[in-house]
Write a protein that binds this DNA or RNA. Structure first.
Lengths: 366, 366
DNA sequence: GGCGCCCTCCAAAACGTTTTGGCTTGCCGC
DNA sequence: GCGGCAAGCCAAAACGTTTTGGAGGGCGCC
């Protein structure tokens, strides 16, 4: 069912049919009616490929998902699930490429842009120094990033203020009387991990405390487990730990439990992402919301604006994070252990914040 | 950089350049060399859209992900993450559409095929009566399904034998001395849920036991939690429960814990999917492997074969499941059963099935 | 009655490929 | 010297659209 056969069936020219369908004003109302009815009746569907060739726009947006073998970034994929429907509602297709971070990744981006496969690109998991961003900027490809970067030039982006998030989380723990607050971070080349580390640090120095211990690893349960175990055996066992992601937090909770300690009481844990299962860990995880649907929505809007010629530098948003309090954090253990149990109702005296804890022998037997 | 400018730059015809690049034998080796070098040098990339228009093949495969708002099917998305790279390695693009199950979903499929957007389709989460499948069959679109269906005609599919899986799981629990084995199932319109239910039932009737209680709900943590809670309060509390998915199992474990019972001891739980976090629940979840990467690999291979003209009815595989034993299941609680432990070699006496257990005070204080 | 204008429609070009069906040229064999 | 053949190249058509630049006719106005 090409436009040609439709036209001949109607005894009209291709031009007229095309214009009738596209709603141009230079076709008589009666004719348009007739064309539309026949198109409907015969199930005519314009061939998108031909249309694209002619118009020069591919009608698709691309996204490259980092696929380290075996393990896939849940957050990333959830985002994808939200983006897909939004784009198709806007009449755009989403083409997906997978590539392990690194060389193949850049290759995927080049593929997408140099083969004219996409009109625009969505990009996530920004890094501090992000070659993908410089590449896209250089080639003038419209794109919107989830997360900021340290590139000089500006680009459309949507981010959640991870720095404030982890500053807030740290203050919350300080309010609970913790004074030794560790950080289990994802690789800090990632902007989100970097920001979260900064927030944590900022909140600590604001009250004159030194940094607690910080450990880094992949954002997986396994890694969270391993790092937390290490922490539990080290001399620097903190009473609270911030985990850069929920997956790491899940591993950490498990490590705490298998060390015979009670998460949320002996050791507080706060995560980030509010994965569906975060409400079902033991204890349920205090964490930060990821308003995936809302972010996807906004990113798509931004991209559409960009494709419409909007100025990228006007399209930069940083949203404020929202903490979801559950039971994996709470008052610092009274005298560091021993007395155990609850402290004085959530308020803690100054001394509680002093860092002699690292000399505390009781911490070693964990 | 079109083929035209490349040709004129070389002083050759478009035809020759095209054929040189495509490796046809009717172009002199020297010329081919020259063309390739110049193409390389000038960064020529054939325009995919034009190529597609001409060849009539879109070079992409489509997949429609069911996107119930807010919550996304992790398994589905993980699959996607695995499929993407494989396809691009084969030179195919993956276009993704999202649609809530139901009317919009069919619309998405029609969009994909009627706009000539895709050469083939991957389809997951098959249902017992699956309109998507009949539609694709009717239109002769090559596709491979993850999961079987109850359609008359046959199509390319890859499935894991969920029936055997849950039969195995049930036998395992019987071997542990359980005789009241419940099922928390996903909606049984889904083929996978249906199969699992059958397996469970089969194993029970094989030893002459009646069905335990079966509850149904969405495959989410919340739903698993709710159903398990209901079960715990009902008169038909079983000592073991099969959950159709890990997400449901996570919810169930949580419900058990908050009822003051110990999962794996008071109530055994077995899930399905081996989500990354399954090793980190409390207790770690006994479940069935989902060899996502291997399945994705095979499905892509099948699709490629199909696009090459293979006969769909030759492409049907059912793999055998593999159980991953952890600690969420174990011997039936002692006095729950009286005769306890293993019975007479897999056979159970009638009395063991009587529901006096519900009078057991230990169960009520939950 | 002629001019110009609007309304409706259309032929043809263009998008960038691939492929069909040649056309030269040179060489070999007789 | 000529027919035949292979090697190497190419012009043009085709894929299905959109868009440009009109064409034709009717009508109002002077």
């Amino acid at each position: 069912m090409s436009i040609r056969s439709l036209a001949s069936r109607l005894g009209l020219s291709i031009t007229t049919v095309s214009r009738a369908l596209a709603g141009y004003p230079d076709v008589a109302a009666a004719t348009r009616e007739r064309v539309q009815r026949e198109a409907e009746r015969s199930g005519y569907r314009p061939n998108h490929v031909a249309r694209r060739l002619r118009t020069g726009r591919s009608g698709t947006v691309g996204i490259v998902v980092p696929s380290e073998q075996g393990t896939f970034d849940q957050f990333f994929l959830a985002m994808l699930g939200a983006i897909g429907p939004l784009l198709s509602r806007a009449g755009l297709d989403l083409v997906l490429m997978g590539a392990p971070p690194g060389k193949a990744e850049m290759h995927a981006y080049r593929h997408l842009v140099e083969h004219h496969r996409v009109d625009g690109i969505l990009l996530a998991r920004t890094r501090r120094d992000d070659p993908r961003i410089s590449y896209l900027l250089k080639h003038g490809v419209p794109f919107v990033a989830h997360g900021r970067s340290e590139t000089r030039s500006s680009f459309a982006s949507l981010d959640i203020d991870g720095e404030t998030a982890f500053a807030t989380a740290t203050e919350r723990l300080l309010g609970f009387g913790h004074s030794q607050i560790g950080l289990i971070n994802a690789p800090e080349q990632y902007m989100f991990a970097h920001h979260r580390a900064i927030g944590w640090q900022r909140a600590l120095t604001a009250v004159g405390l030194p940094q607690g211990p910080v450990l880094r690893g992949e954002a997986t349960e396994e890694s969270g487990h391993r790092l937390m175990s290490a922490l539990l055996q080290s001399e620097r066992l903190p009473t609270a730990v911030l985990c850069a992601t929920d997956r790491m937090a899940v591993g950490a909770l498990h490590a705490i439990a298998s060390a015979g300690l009670r998460a949320g009481r002996d050791v507080s844990v706060i995560g980030y992402d509010d994965l569906p299962m975060a409400g079902y860990t033991d204890p349920p995880l205090t964490t930060f919301e990821q308003p995936i649907a809302r972010m996807a929505q906004r990113m798509v809007e931004m991209l559409l604006a960009l494709l419409d010629g909007a100025d990228p530098s006007q399209l930069r948003e940083v949203w404020t994070p929202r903490l979801i309090a559950r039971q994996s954090d709470g008052p610092a253990p009274k005298r560091m252990r021993r007395a155990g149990k609850r402290a004085n109702g959530g308020r803690y005296v100054q001394e509680a914040r002093h860092p002699e804890w690292s000399d505390n022998p009781q911490l070693h037997d964990s």
